[in-house]
């Protein structure tokens, strides 16, 4: 009370969470995966930075996108990377994708009663050489999928993906059924369109776009050659390869 008396009970609370905006998205192809995220980090109506990567390369065949509470996200990625390094030291190889997925679920559920406030999407190449996407909720429920959007603009992007990736509500001609997996070039166009659309209508999405492309071992870089601003991130060009494409998004 202003008069300094203690006659009225007061309540104080510390809220350990905040929401930092942004959106992530991943699509699996037959022998590749694409994982993308914008780079804006915001709190309320303020932009904290225009470049805070949400997509992280874990191994030469696994990429993790993390969205939600940035502090939790960064810490979580750090811990996953540490566990993967221990695995490397113990087994002299990279952890397979499906094992990383299970590891992430265990780590998330380990914090069941004080969760990492993040939505994860793991993308990469499975041991059998197929492209794969795993999506997680904050406490570790997970599922392998072909495509998934998460974060601030999930509501905007996911139905668009249903339509363009799963061909939902589209009737295929009898002689040419819908493809199960799209070619890389088409997937990249859809990813870029999704983010420009989300940027247009959502205030928390924008600034920059990072698209990670993971190619299965032996697959040519076909579909990437016409793309500008591509950078290879992989250590071994003979194995599964990781590329990153960087694009500008509107900054308003």
């Amino acid at each position: 009370m202003p008069d300094g008396s203690f006659s009225h009970p007061q309540e104080r609370q510390f809220n350990p969470y905040t929401e930092n905006g942004g959106t992530i998205l991943a699509i699996a192809g037959a022998d590749f995966s694409v994982v993308a995220g914008d780079t804006r980090q915001s709190e309320g109506y303020s932009i904290q930075t225009r470049y805070a990567p949400k997509v992280h390369k874990l191994t030469d065949r696994a990429v993790l996108a993390v969205n939600g509470f940035a502090a939790d996200g960064n810490m979580f990625v750090k811990k996953v990377k540490q566990r993967l390094e221990w695995y490397r030291h113990a087994h002299a190889k990279d952890m397979p994708l499906r094992a990383i997925a299970r590891l992430i679920q265990t780590m998330l559920y380990g914090q069941r009663f004080f969760p990492y406030y993040v939505y994860n999407i793991l993308g990469g190449i499975e041991e059998d050489g197929t492209g794969a996407i795993y999506s997680f909720d904050p406490v570790g429920s997970y599922e392998r999928e072909t495509c998934r959007a998460a974060g601030a603009a999930m509501a905007l992007v996911q139905p668009f993906l249903d339509n363009q990736i799963y061909f939902k509500n589209q009737q295929a001609p009898a002689d040419s059924p819908h493809p199960v997996h799209l070619p890389l070039q088409d997937v990249l166009s859809i990813v870029i369109d999704s983010f420009t659309s989300a940027t247009e209508r959502h205030i928390e999405v924008g600034d920059g776009l990072e698209i990670y492309v993971i190619l299965a071992k032996g697959r040519s870089a076909q579909g990437l050659e016409s793309i500008r601003n591509v950078q290879e991130m992989s250590t071994n060009p003979e194995g599964d390869r990781v590329f990153v494409i960087r694009r500008e998004l509107k900054k308003d």
Binding site: A155, Q158, F160, N163, S197, A198
Partner: peptide
């Protein structure tokens, strides 16, 4: 409305 915005902006 949010979903409509997203899809319409794309199509």
């Amino acid at each position: 409305s949010e979903k409509l915005f997203g899809v319409a902006e794309g199509l």
